[in-house]
């Protein structure tokens, strides 16, 4: 028996749920893919040029789903228009910035893709730079929109945008590898993407994993040595109700296993890399789940 028990309280729903976590994942994967797409045209790494189109189409496709999720997630879907009306714009609301980004990023990306298709290196580069900034910002913002809530202890950390961006980078690559692998099965041999290139991307993904692990460790330290809410949040939420997405999905499936694949001889096998890419992409979704819903979880009983 506890010394004290809370015997009555009313209940609250989590304010943002699955939809938002899926949206975060999609935006992340989109930004990640787009970064790869820009390697060739913006950063001038020639060998990446062939996959630029696939990468940016993937990025656009991911992003096309986003408005559907976001708009229908609103209590009043039609009122999404208010977000863009000048009289309604609220400069201090992170969501306002996000709206601007979510609408401008796909447009920039479309224009960029147009120049890629038209094989116009100059404009592709110029618009590409703009797009890459927007891509990163769009995803940076998803971290920020969660971070700027001082009352949500698990989310209120300056690491949030970095964690989100790292996640975006690795899940974007993971997804792209899968798509390229599938694409290779259907296109003529001469149009196939070289496997070496994919291996190189996997290598970047591995660096991302290391950095991600480092960030997670920092976050872990903060909660461990943090306020009562942070400590308990870690204990009850992350290691409790959200243990699967946090510990298993993100850490084990999405981080440790692919890391070992990518540093071991298994990476020599095609299947190894494909598997690692799949695990990473899925694992990052685990992070989106605990980050969004877990962060709000404790407070539903406050």
């Amino acid at each position: 028996m506890n010394e004290s028990v809370i015997t009555y309280n009313v209940f609250h729903h989590v304010a943002w749920g699955t939809t938002i976590s899926v949206y975060f994942w999609l935006v992340g994967a989109s930004a990640g893919s787009f970064v790869i797409s820009s390697f060739g045209w913006v950063f001038g790494i020639k060998r990446y040029k062939p996959l630029a189109l696939t990468a940016s189409v993937t990025a656009i496709a991911m992003l096309l789903i986003v408005p559907i999720l976001l708009i229908w997630d609103l209590g009043r879907p039609l009122r999404f228009l208010y977000l863009m009306l000048p009289g309604y714009w609220h400069a201090t609301g992170p969501m306002s910035w996000g709206t601007a980004l979510i609408f401008s990023y796909p447009i920039a990306m479309l224009i960029y893709t147009y120049f890629v298709v038209k094989n116009n290196p100059l404009w592709a580069k110029i618009v590409g730079i703009v797009s890459i900034v927007l891509a990163l910002s769009t995803h940076w913002y998803t971290g920020v929109v969660m971070e700027l809530n001082p009352g949500r202890f698990l989310n209120h950390t300056a690491l949030a945008p970095l964690l989100f961006l790292t996640g975006a980078f690795i899940s974007g690559i993971g997804l792209l590898i899968l798509i390229l692998w599938i694409q290779n099965m259907f296109v003529a041999i001469k149009n196939r993407i070289e496997w070496a290139l994919i291996e190189e991307m996997a290598q970047y993904m591995m660096y991302g994993l290391v950095f991600d692990a480092f960030l997670l460790f920092l976050d872990f330290m903060q909660t461990l040595y943090g306020s009562h809410s942070e400590v308990m949040g870690h204990e009850i939420v992350l290691m409790g109700v959200f243990r699967f997405p946090y510990l298993w999905l993100e850490m084990v499936i999405g981080l440790i296993i692919p890391f070992f694949i990518l540093v071991s001889p298994i990476k020599k096998f095609k299947a190894g890399i494909i598997l690692a890419a799949l695990l990473v992409a899925v694992g990052v979704y685990g992070m989106r789940v605990w980050w969004v819903m877990g962060g709000q979880y404790l407070q539903t009983f406050y």
């Binding site: 506890n2 028990v5 809370i6 309280n9 009562h228 809410s229």
Partner: peptide, 9 residues
């Protein structure tokens, strides 16, 4: 806050 959660009946 966390106490409210951990000490529910």
């Amino acid at each position: 806050e966390p106490h409210s959660y951990t000490n529910r009946s």
